[in-house]
Nucleic acid binder design. Structure first.
Lengths: 139, 139
DNA sequence: ATACATCATTTGTATATACAAATATATTCA
DNA sequence: TGAATATATTTGTATATACAAATGATGTAT
């Protein structure tokens, strides 16, 4: 019986959704949705190099997130800048503004607060093991 | 540094979303959304005893899923029956119809196909360990 | 060069979701 | 009892998401 498989997988699913739901809740007061936060994080991860819509899309947690429209929202709030890519006019260079960077810092510390109580529940070895097991599961 | 924490948590999140997204994709040809499938599964889990909307809600993966309207859809398709609960007229008794049970079997085997390649990637011990670690993480 | 397929993004639109407000029943306690 | 509070579900509505189609730029083959 694959009862252990489905037990574990169910934990992964519900925990994954629970975390993004909680983060989403925490960001509500900033007027930022979880996908919007995700885009900001991804842009910061790009180390100040602009990213195109497709690259952001690929790094999104949510399948089929409509990155164009999410970026629209962020542009409206001056958190992000979008300009035509110089070497390929089909692409868009999307990058954080200073305002976006500053807000992201605030958002991150809010998110950090949520994670705080969980950070030390597992030892370093357990965390490594957890990550390894999930990677192995995914194949 | 909490790099190991965020590495592991990120795996949990992305894997959790990835699985529901894939399942959702697999159910598309049946005209059933992932939340609808979830409700059917939860009702089956109720061992043929009807469940009220609130109890279904609590077992949903998705926070704030609008169970009333999801049940509407399922009722329209004759997969589910909704009637007033006899001992509390505020509550609704929601239960699977035979058609719903039959479809659920089909859906389950479609979902099983998705899980198939992953089922034996981890040993029983690893699966138990994975589940234990996530539970411990959640606290 | 020019037609044709491909790629990157945006837009149209139908459906789903989030959140608040409304409705209806049940419980509590002065 | 009956007024106030709590509970269960539904509905209104604004926003978000999914999917397909449209737009516009680039690459490719003849």
């Amino acid at each position: 019986m694959s009862i252990h498989y489905f037990g574990a997988v169910n934990q992964v699913i519900t925990t994954g959704h629970w975390i993004t739901d909680q983060v989403s809740l925490g960001l509500k007061s900033f007027g930022i949705s979880e996908p919007q936060y995700n885009v900001l994080r991804i842009l910061k991860g790009g180390k100040s190099k602009p990213l195109d819509i497709g690259s952001i899309q690929m790094k999104m947690i949510q399948r089929n997130s409509n990155v164009s429209r999410i970026v629209d929202k962020l542009v409206d709030k001056d958190l992000v800048e979008r300009k035509e890519c110089s070497d390929n006019r089909r692409k868009m260079d999307v990058s954080l503004t200073q305002k976006g960077l500053d807000l992201l810092d605030e958002l991150n510390s809010r998110v950090q607060e949520f994670h705080e109580p969980m950070i030390h529940r597992l030892t370093k070895e357990e965390l490594i093991s957890l990550q390894r097991l999930i990677k192995k599961l995914k194949g």
